[in-house]
Amino acid sequence: MIYDMKPEQVIGDYKEVRLDLFGGISRVCLYTEIETPYPDGKLIVSTTDNSGVITHVNKSFVEMSGYTEDELLNAPHSILRHPDMPPAAFKDLWDTISAGKKWQGYVKNLRKDGGYYWVKATVIPNVRNGVVVGYTSVRRKPSRSKVEACIKLYPTLF
């Protein structure tokens, strides 16, 4: 399940927007300008089923997203969707992985407290006996120069 964000969960001044997410879901997002730096040496790992519902998370995912493991499991991966991310990026992601290919890109993720963190994300289809049974996503620390380039590029893609 995914819920509208609540002001009492947010830290700092925030803006409000309603986002249309993958799968016909709509969500009120509250977001701030507070960045959480990606920690050195860690990987954020998650798996989803074919429809993008989270089936596994690691400790780093829990720490960086601000959600508990229970809140993340069975939620759509778009629980992390930040309003600054252009829908075209996620369309490209789904088009790529649905075709059985690996997708890689730089993503600004939304935390439960309204803050954000940048990642370099890689998503691959999990193929078992020739059938795609879900997806694995691994996020790692991005280079600042790539992030700066995305900060300039992404607003032009809306």
Binding site: T47, T122, I124, T136, R140
Partner: peptide
């Protein structure tokens, strides 16, 4: 093992 192989696949790019 399949999970670890998938993970290595994601990293090997």
């Amino acid at each position: 093992m399949e999970f670890m192989i998938d993970l290595m696949d994601t990293l090997n790019t």
